[in-house]
Structures are given as C-alpha cells and as structure tokens.
C-alpha cells in the first residue's frame, strides 16, 4: 500500500550515514518533486547540526515491506539460546573456575618471560 502525500509530490524515505564506520540509518521522510530535491530537503531537515558523510533518498513506492500484522513471520517459537552468547557464557564461566589456579600460574610465567 502506497502511503499518500500531495498527489504531485512524491515521498522519499531518507537514510543518513554519520561516518564511514556506521551504517546508513533511516531518519524520516520528505516530500519532493525529484530525488535531487529530496536529498537537499533531507540535509535541511535532518542535518542542521549533526555531521554526515552520505544521504540516501529512496522513493517510498520502491520499498517492499512486511506487514506489521504478520506476526508469524517474525515468530520465535523455538529456543534460540544456542545461537547467542548468553547460551554459553554462564556455563563456560562455571567450568573455567576449576582451571583458575593453573591459569594464574601460566599467566605469571608469561609475564615473567
């Protein structure tokens, strides 16, 4: 479903990249007659203070989207702990405990060397 604006303006979704270490992040949208204008308006609307290295303007009608009502698509019925840090961290810490003395001795040896 296309969200409407003024029939003659098009809606552009705006993505800003603040520096080269960061991904482009969606910040909002603007009404514009062309992509070129959209980028200009985006700079005036979203970058009056913050620095940035890049702006993307994407016509809203070009975006394919999931439906918020389709919860099944994002369902997490099964236990996903086996994919996460939290699934291992506590158990590993518990098991490392019995090696603690050895570990300390070894580390001391390395430091001495």
């Amino acid at each position: 479903m296309a969200l409407g604006a003024h029939p003659r303006f098009r809606v552009y979704e705006i993505f800003v990249q603040k520096d080269h270490q960061s991904p482009h992040v969606w910040v909002g949208s603007v009404d514009a007659g062309s992509a070129e204008d959209a980028i200009l308006l985006a700079r005036e609307s979203f970058l009056r203070r913050d620095p940035a290295v890049s702006i993307w303007a994407v016509e809203q009608s070009a975006i394919h989207r999931t439906d918020y009502a389709d919860r099944d698509f994002f369902a997490r019925e099964t236990d996903k702990r086996y994919r996460t840090l939290a699934g291992y961290r506590a158990a590993n810490a518990e098991r490392w405990r019995k090696y603690r003395r050895e570990l300390l001795d070894l580390e001391r040896d390395f430091v001495r060397d």
């Binding site: 003024h6 029939p7 609307s45």
Partner: peptide, 21 residues
Amino acid sequence: GHAQLILRVAEDLAAPLGKGR
C-alpha cells in the same frame, strides 16, 4: 523544520480521508 516533519506524518494519516498536504 518540525512543522515539515509532523506534516509528513499527518499526510500519511490523512491520505485515506482524501486530504493532502
């Protein structure tokens, strides 16, 4: 600038009512 941002949100809501910017 705030007016522009809020109008953009209002437009999406008003479109099905046949009302534009």
